[in-house]
Computed example of a mutant assay.
Amino acid sequence: MTKNKPKNNYQGGAEDFKGFIRLSSNENNDGPSSRVKTALKNNVNFSNIYPELDGETLRNQISKTYSLNSEQLILGAGSDEVLQMIYATFTKPGDEVIFTKYAFAMYAIYAKNFKCKPRIFNDSKFQFSLNEFAKLASSKTKIIFLANPNNPTGSIFYKDEIINFIKKINKKTLIVLDSAYCEYLQEKNYDDGLSLVKKFPNLIITRSFSKIYALGGLRIGWGYSSMQNILKLYQYKKPFNVSRLSCIAATEALKDQRWISRSIKNNQNNKKYTANNLNNSLIKTIDTTANFILLKFSHEKIANKFVKFLYTNKITVRHLASYGLPKYVRMTIGSLTEMKKTIKVCNRFNV
């Protein structure tokens, strides 16, 4: 037995899920649509055959669903692989990259892996000013990463704010708009960024099938940008980087928009139910526009005890100490049955 085991730099949610209510990784607990399940069952016997080289069928479906040019799309094993390709393509050691302090951990991990120099904006107030964020950028900045909405803080920016922000940034600086949770946003003044790519060629949008589409276990995501950027990204894309089954599942998921609408409504209703019924003086509830809420405690020890208490009751949530937020716990919104049980357990918690 080796003394030093290989260890991933990213700390994910709890691995336990069989017999647990899993509220630790912002997954869609409704699971994949029946259409996706049928497609997977019908195609599993073809797993011995290599997938399409560049996922043409899925790219065409994304193009159809969102009215995009399929040639300006690139697929990845999760949107995190698209982020990795962006680093590989557009940075060299010593390049400056910018992101917020409390953001998706892979921004910082890839910055370290590719030997970039991160400039980190302190978003300790969670909902911050994009004007202040823009001040951190200069002509030396290679890439800016901005999640909208952001995990785990829930910060959210609307279309006019995003456009004004982009206009303040040097045109030679790439702006990566991470829209992994965008499907949960129903407000008319919110924009996932896809419509802005034509006007701003320095903009790259990343998207995921791991959240609302419930395909986290199949690792599939995508990016959209100007043709010039996509051509460069393809120089660093591995052949067959996404599996046959993941592409089939994602294609069918996009076709089932009725199921997506139902999942969005379930999330809204179950989140509202949770906020109205979670009643514990030790817990301050903070809402977000995505599929999770934040729970704030007066002390890290209480937050840690709470996570352990839920675990003994077969419920997993995410303590945000690894994000530098030790007093906070992130709770995914699950099914109504799951949330009813979770609320009862939360309301019993005491120190």
Rank of each mutant, 00 (worst) to 15 (best):
I220D: 01
N266R: 15
V242E: 09
Y224S: 08
D256V: 04
N269W: 06
N276A: 14
A275N: 09
P239F: 05
G223Q: 04
W222A: 14
F292C: 07
K237P: 07
T251P: 02
K296T: 03
Y234L: 11
R262G: 05
L231E: 14
Q228H: 13
N280S: 04
A250T: 10
K296S: 07
C247K: 03
I286S: 03
Q257E: 11
A250R: 05
E252T: 02
I220S: 01
N276V: 06
K265E: 05
N277K: 12
N267A: 04
I283F: 13
A275D: 02
S246P: 04
A253V: 04
N280Y: 01
N291V: 10
A249Q: 00
L278I: 07
K296H: 02
F240Q: 12
I260G: 05
Q228L: 10
Y273W: 10
S246E: 02
I248S: 14
K284V: 08
S225E: 07
L231F: 05
Q268R: 06
Y224D: 11
F240V: 06
A290K: 11
A250K: 06
Q257S: 15
A253R: 03
I264W: 10
N270Y: 02
L294A: 08
L245H: 14
N291E: 13
F297R: 01
Q268K: 12
Q235N: 15
C247A: 13
Q268A: 13
W222P: 13
G223I: 00
I283V: 12
P239Y: 06
L295W: 00
Y273D: 02
W259L: 14
K232W: 03
T251F: 01
K296W: 00
L233S: 06
R258S: 15
D287S: 09
N241P: 08
S246F: 00
N267R: 11
S243P: 06
D287E: 07
V242C: 10
I293G: 12
S261L: 14
L245P: 13
A249L: 01
T285V: 14
I286C: 03
N266S: 06
S263G: 13
R262Y: 08
N229F: 05
K255H: 04
I260M: 09
S261W: 11
K271F: 10
N267Q: 06
S226T: 06
N266G: 03
S225N: 07
D287Y: 05
K232D: 12
S225G: 14
N266Q: 12
I230Y: 10
N276C: 14
Y236H: 06
S281E: 15
I283R: 07
C247V: 07
S225Y: 06
N291K: 11
Q257H: 13
N279D: 04
T274C: 14
N270A: 10
F297A: 00
K238L: 11
Y234H: 09
A253F: 00
K255A: 08
L282M: 09
K237F: 02
S263P: 08
I248E: 11
L295D: 00
K232M: 07
S261H: 13
F240D: 06
N269I: 15
I230Q: 13
I248Y: 12
E252L: 03
